[in-house]
Design a protein around this nucleic acid. Structure first.
Lengths: 335, 335
DNA sequence: CTGAAAGCGCTAACAA
DNA sequence: TTGTTAGCGCTTTCAG
C-alpha cells in the first residue's frame, strides 16, 4: 500500500532502526548513512505514520482543544492564539466541539479524543460539567480557560471585576435603571455568567439600585439573541436607560434593535458589551476588552510546558479585562 | 500503564477479539457476553486507543481541515459548518493552518497530517500552491473550497460574477471613479482575488471606466489593512467616490477610516464589501453574501461521502453570492 | 555506529 | 458465537 520504514530501509540498504534514527535526526548516525536514508526516503516519497509512532512511543504529538462553539468570536480568537503557539512547536491540534445541548447523541470529548492526544486545552466548559470531570480523570495534562477547577493549570479572567467595571460605568453615566442581557443561565453558579452577575450585583447593591427580573433577559451569547433581548427590554413599562450585554456579539444585536426603534446607542440608551472584539470599534460600542488571543497563546504554552516542549510557563494566570469607552455610553458623542 | 483490551478481556473472561467486537457493537456477540464486556470495560475505565485501531484498520476516523487562517470570519464560518457536519458522523477534525508566508519553518500539511487523517478538506489554498499539489498526490480523498483543481470535488463560489455585481451596483448608483481594496495580490491568476478582479474589470470595461493603479490598494483581508487602504485612497488627488472592498472585514476598516475623516459611508463615499458576515448588518454595509456555513457543511458532506459515511453528495457545487444592499451604498439612507 | 528482535493496542482472518 | 494468531508501522532496548 503505502511506503513504510521497511521500504526505505531496503532501498537504503540499512535496517529499519537506522532509518528511524536517521529520519529523526539522531546524532548517532553516520553522515553518509544518513544521506543515503534521506535520499531513499525522498525518492520513495516516504511519509511516516504518526499512528504507528504514537503506538510505539505513547505520544501523539497532538493536543485536543475542547470548546463549546467555533462560531463565537471569543472562541475563535482563543483558538487562533492556541493554534499559533502550537504550530511553533509542531504540535497538531484536534478540535472538539461540545456543541449545543440540543445534540441528540453527543460523544463526550474524552471518549473521542483520549489516546489520540497528549493533552487537553479546555475552553470554558462549565466548571461542573461531567465532561470536564471525565477529562480531568484521564492521566493527561489539562489546562483550561474559565472557572478554574482546583489543582488545574489555566488562565482565568476577572469576570466579576470586569462586570463590575462595566456596571459602574453605566452608573457613572447617570443611569439608575440598568438592564442586563446575559447568556443562558442566570442562577447556575458553575457557569461563566454567574461571575459576571456577581460583579453586576456588587455594584448595584452598593449603589442601592435594583435589578428586577423584568430588566434582564437571556441572549444566548449570539447576535440574534441580543437583538431579541433588547427588544424585550424596550417593551417593558419602565425600560432600562443603560444596558450591559455580557458579550459584544449580543451587544451588536442590541444596537440593531435600538436602531430599528429609531433609538441611538449612547444618546437614547447607553450600552456596553463585553469581550472587546475588533469590530466593536466601528460599531462605537463600549466594552470590556479581554485579550483572548493572548489567553489562547498562554494556554498553549502551559500545555507545551506540561508536555516538556517549549519553555516553562506559569501555572495559573489571571487576566484583567480592560474598559474601553466609546460612543455607546456617551450621550454627547456623535456616532 | 493504561488499561487495554487485554485487561478488559481478562476481567470479562473472554478473548480480546470478543472485547473488540462487543465494544463496537457487532451483532455477532451474545447478549450476556456483551454485557459482561461492557461491564468490565466500564469498571476498568477503559478507553480505546484510536492510534492502535488506526494502525490496524488503516482508518483514523479523522479528517484534516487545511486553512490559511483561523482568525478570519469567512474561515471561521466554514469551519463551523464543517465541524457541525463531521460531528454528526462522529468524525474528528484536525485543524491545520498554513499561516502566514512569514512563518520561518512551515511544516507542509501533508507531512504533518498524512497518515493521521482519512482525508483532507482544503479551504482556499492558492490553486497553484505546492502544498495543494502534495496533498493531491496523496492517496487520500480531498475536497476543496476555492479555485478548483481539475478532477477534485469541492465547492466553488462565483467570485467573478459576485465581483461584477458589486461593481455594477456602484456604477448603478452613479459612481464613475470606482476604487478597489483587494487582498494581497492583484496579478496572480491562481489566487482568489484574481477572479474578483476579472469581475470588476468585466463591468468597468463594458462601461468604459478606468481603474488606474492609484485607485486600488491591498488590504490583506484584515480590518486594519482595509483601514489603511481606504486612507490611502482618500489621499489621492482624485479619490474614488465608490469603493469595493474584497472582504467585509476590510470594509469595516474602511468605514472606520471614513469616519475618522468625517465622512459618512453611503452619503459621502459609497462602500460595498464581500462575504456577508452577520455584523455587516449593524454596520449598514452593503455586501455580497456568501453562505460560508453552508459551504463548509457541503464540503464536509462531500468528504463523508468519499469516506463511505453519510449520504451521497454532489461532486461539484457552485454557490452564487447574493447582493445585499444597505446604507453604505445609498446616499439618502440614514445610517 | 548499526542491526535484530520484541513489542505498543488493536483488528481481522481463520478456525473451532 | 467465540478464540487464536498474525500483523498494522514504528520505536527501542540490547547486542554486536
Amino acid at each position: 500500500m503505502s511506503v513504510t520504514v521497511r521500504d526505505v530501509a531496503r532501498l537504503a540498504g540499512v535496517s529499519t532502526a537506522t532509518v528511524s534514527r536517521a529520519l529523526r535526526g539522531f546524532p548517532t548516525v553516520g553522515e553518509d548513512i544518513r544521506a543515503q536514508v534521506l535520499d531513499a526516503a525522498d525518492r520513495l516519497g516516504y511519509v511516516g505514520s504518526h499512528a504507528a509512532a504514537a503506538l510505539s512511543t505513547g505520544r501523539t504529538g497532538c493536543v485536543g482543544v475542547i470548546t463549546p462553539f467555533v462560531n463565537r468570536l471569543a472562541f475563535q480568537r482563543m483558538l487562533a492564539g492556541v493554534e499559533h503557539e502550537l504550530r511553533a512547536e509542531r504540535v497538531d491540534l484536534m478540535l472538539h466541539c461540545t456543541g449545543d445541548p440540543s445534540d441528540p447523541h453527543p460523544v463526550p470529548p474524552h471518549k473521542r479524543l483520549a489516546r489520540r492526544v497528549d493533552g487537553f486545552i479546555v475552553l470554558s466548559l462549565s466548571a461542573e460539567s461531567p465532561d470536564l470531570a471525565e477529562i480531568l480523570k484521564l492521566p493527561l495534562p489539562t489546562v483550561m480557560f474559565g472557572p478554574q477547577a482546583p489543582g488545574v493549570a489555566g488562565v482565568e479572567t476577572d469576570d466579576r471585576g470586569g462586570a463590575a467595571s462595566a456596571t459602574q460605568l453605566l452608573a457613572d453615566r447617570g443611569h439608575r435603571r440598568i438592564g442586563v442581557i446575559y447568556g443562558r443561565e442566570w442562577d447556575n453558579p458553575s457557569v461563566l455568567e454567574y461571575q459576571r452577575r456577581q460583579g453586576v450585583e456588587d455594584v448595584l447593591e452598593r449603589l442601592g439600585l435594583p435589578l428586577p427580573e423584568e430588566r434582564r433577559r437571556p441572549g444566548g451569547f449570539i447576535m440574534r439573541g441580543g437583538h431579541r433581548a433588547m427588544l424585550e427590554l424596550l417593551d417593558r413599562p419602565e425600560p432600562p436607560t443603560g444596558v450591559f450585554a455580557f458579550s459584544d456579539e449580543m451587544a451588536y444585536g442590541a444596537v440593531q434593535a435600538l436602531r430599528e426603534r429609531g433609538l441611538t446607542p449612547g444618546r437614547d440608551v447607553a450600552l456596553i458589551g463585553y469581550d472587546g472584539h475588533e469590530m466593536s470599534d466601528i460599531v462605537g460600542l463600549s466594552t470590556m476588552h479581554v485579550p483572548f488571543e493572548q489567553i489562547g497563546a498562554a494556554l498553549a504554552r502551559q500545555m507545551l510546558a506540561a508536555l516538556g516542549l517549549g519553555g516553562p510557563a506559569e501555572a495559573h494566570i489571571i487576566v484583567p479585562p480592560v474598559l474601553i469607552e466609546r460612543a455607546s455610553t456617551r450621550p454627547d458623542a456623535a456616532l
